[in-house]
Amino acid sequence: MSRHVSTLLLIAPAFLAAGLASCAPTASHEASSATSSPRQCFYSRQVTSFRGDDQTLYVRTQNRDVFELQALGYCNDLDFSLTIAFLPGVMDRLCAGDTTRIVASGGPAPQTPCRVRVIKKLTDAEIVALPDRNRP
């Protein structure tokens, strides 16, 4: 029995060291954190144009950036609307992952607030790849 206990005492530190090593940060994790891009944000008051359909909306800002927004539920007539308005909220600055409410007007349906989430800022290649009907 004492032989089994001594074997356990020799094996236990090896398992403990392996467990602690698995908690240590890796070089690839540190490198990815250092090279992560800044937050992708825009100010709703700087939106100059928009296009999209009832589920996806693309907005262009004054500095020519294009952001993709996804509807959280159904949004009436985004594809037929002449204007959109971001409803007043806590913040005017919207970043990828944020949600906000908009109202689209000028279409045949009544103006109903709609919740949307900012998905991301599109790259130049993604903007060029958008169909003309969706490019703001």
Rank of each mutant, 00 (worst) to 15 (best):
T99L: 00
A96W: 13
G97D: 15
V90D: 11
G106T: 07
T56A: 11
L94G: 02
R60P: 01
F86E: 04
V90K: 14
D79H: 11
Q55S: 10
A71M: 10
D98N: 13
S105W: 00
L94D: 03
L94M: 05
R101S: 14
Q111A: 12
I84S: 01
R93E: 05
P88G: 05
D98K: 11
R93L: 15
M91A: 10
N76M: 06
M91T: 13
L78D: 08
T56L: 10
L57Q: 02
E68Q: 12
F80C: 08
R60Y: 08
Q111S: 07
Q70D: 13
T112F: 08
Q55C: 06
N63A: 15
A96V: 12
R60I: 02
G97A: 06
T61P: 01
T100S: 09
F80S: 15
D98Q: 01
D79C: 13
N76W: 11
A71V: 09
T61M: 10
G97Q: 08
Y58T: 01
L94T: 06
N76Q: 13
V59P: 00
T100I: 11
A85V: 03
C95S: 11
D54I: 08
C75D: 14
D53Q: 12
P88I: 01
I84N: 00
T112E: 11
N63M: 05
P110F: 13
C95A: 04
T100D: 03
Q55F: 10
R93Y: 07
R60L: 06
G107F: 10
S105F: 07
Q55M: 11
F67Y: 05
L87A: 01
I102G: 04
T100G: 01
G52Y: 00
Y58R: 04
G106S: 07
T99P: 01
D53G: 15
T100E: 03
P108D: 09
T61K: 03
D79Y: 05
N63E: 07
L57I: 08
D54Q: 11
S105H: 09
D79T: 09
M91Q: 11
V66M: 08
P88K: 05
Y58M: 00
D77R: 07
M91E: 09
L69G: 00
D92R: 10
V59D: 02
Y58P: 03
Q62V: 12
Y74I: 12
D79G: 12
R60G: 08
G97T: 14
G52S: 12
A104V: 04
S105A: 03
T99F: 00
M91N: 13
Q55G: 07
R93I: 12
G97C: 12
S105Y: 02
Q70F: 14
T56W: 03
A109K: 15
T56H: 12
D98T: 07
Q62P: 02
Q111M: 09
R101F: 10
T112D: 06
R93F: 07
L57M: 09
T100P: 02
S81Y: 03
R64V: 11
Y74Q: 14
D92P: 03
L87K: 01
L69N: 08
G89L: 03
I84Y: 09
D79M: 09
F86L: 01
C95P: 01
P108L: 09
T100M: 07
S81Q: 10
L94N: 00
D98E: 05
